[in-house]
C-alpha cells in the first residue's frame, strides 16, 4: 500500500456537498408520487452529477451527462409520462424483513470494500498508474490529437465505439418497431381499446 494522503482542499468540500445533494435528490425522487416531479428531479440529478464530473476534471463525461442525462432523457421521460398516468399508484406500506436484511448486508459489504480502495487522487492507484498513464504518454506519438479522451474513444477503442453506435441504432429500431410505422394497422392513429370492453 502506498502512503498517499488525500490532499484536503476547499474543492473537496464542494465535491462532498454535491454528493450530499445527489443523495437528497435521490430520496426526494423515492418519496414523490407525482411523476412530473420525479422526471424533473431526475433532470436535476443529472445536472448535479455533471457538476460533480466537472469538479473531478472529467469534462467530456460532464458534457455528455448534461446533454444526454439532463437534456434529452428528461424530454423523453416527459414524452413517456404523457402516455401514462400522472400519478404513481399508492403503495401499501408493509414490512419485508428478508429484503431489508439483504439490502443491509450488501450495503455493509460495499462499505467494507471501500476500505481497500486507493485514496482519492492517489497517483499510484491502478487506474492512474498502468494503462491510464500509457494512454497519456503514447497519445502524442500514436494519434497526435490534443484531446486524449477523443483519441481513446475514436481510435484506440474505435471498435468499442462502433458497438456503442450500434446499440443506439438498435434502440431507435426497437422504438420504431414497438411504437411506430410499419405496423399491421398501417401507422394510422387508432385509439387503444379500454380494458373493460
Amino acid at each position: 500500500m502506498s502512503s498517499f494522503q488525500t490532499h484536503i482542499s476547499p474543492l473537496l468540500f464542494l465535491d462532498l456537498s454535491l454528493l450530499t445533494m445527489l443523495v437528497l435528490v435521490a430520496f426526494a425522487m423515492l418519496r414523490s408520487r407525482q411523476l412530473f416531479a420525479v422526471v424533473m428531479l431526475s433532470g436535476i440529478y443529472s445536472l448535479l452529477s455533471a457538476a460533480f464530473f466537472v469538479s473531478l476534471d472529467a469534462v467530456d463525461v460532464a458534457f455528455t451527462e448534461a446533454a444526454v442525462g439532463a437534456g434529452v432523457s428528461t424530454v423523453l421521460m416527459l414524452g413517456g409520462m404523457l402516455l401514462t398516468a400522472r400519478r404513481e399508484k399508492p403503495v401499501t406500506p408493509g414490512r419485508a424483513p428478508v429484503a431489508l436484511a439483504v439490502v443491509l448486508a450488501t450495503g455493509a459489504a460495499l462499505i467494507y470494500a471501500t476500505i481497500d480502495m486507493p485514496a482519492f487522487g492517489d497517483p499510484h492507484s491502478p487506474a492512474n498508474s498502468s494503462i491510464g498513464q500509457m494512454y497519456v504518454d503514447e497519445t502524442p506519438n500514436d494519434i497526435a490529437v490534443p484531446n486524449i479522451v477523443t483519441a481513446v474513444l475514436a481510435s484506440y477503442r474505435g471498435f468499442d465505439t462502433l458497438g456503442e453506435t450500434m446499440v443506439i441504432f438498435t434502440a431507435g429500431v426497437a422504438v420504431i418497431l414497438l411504437l411506430g410505422i410499419g405496423s399491421v394497422r398501417g401507422g394510422r392513429r387508432i385509439a387503444d381499446r379500454d380494458e373493460d370492453e
Binding site: 467530456d60 460532464a62 458534457f63 455528455t64 444526454v68 484531446n147 479522451v149 474513444l153
Partner: peptide, 11 residues
C-alpha cells in the same frame, strides 16, 4: 472540435 476540446459525435 472534438479532437481539441471536450465533445465529439455523441454530444
Amino acid at each position: 472540435h472534438g479532437d481539441y476540446g471536450p465533445g465529439g459525435g455523441f454530444q
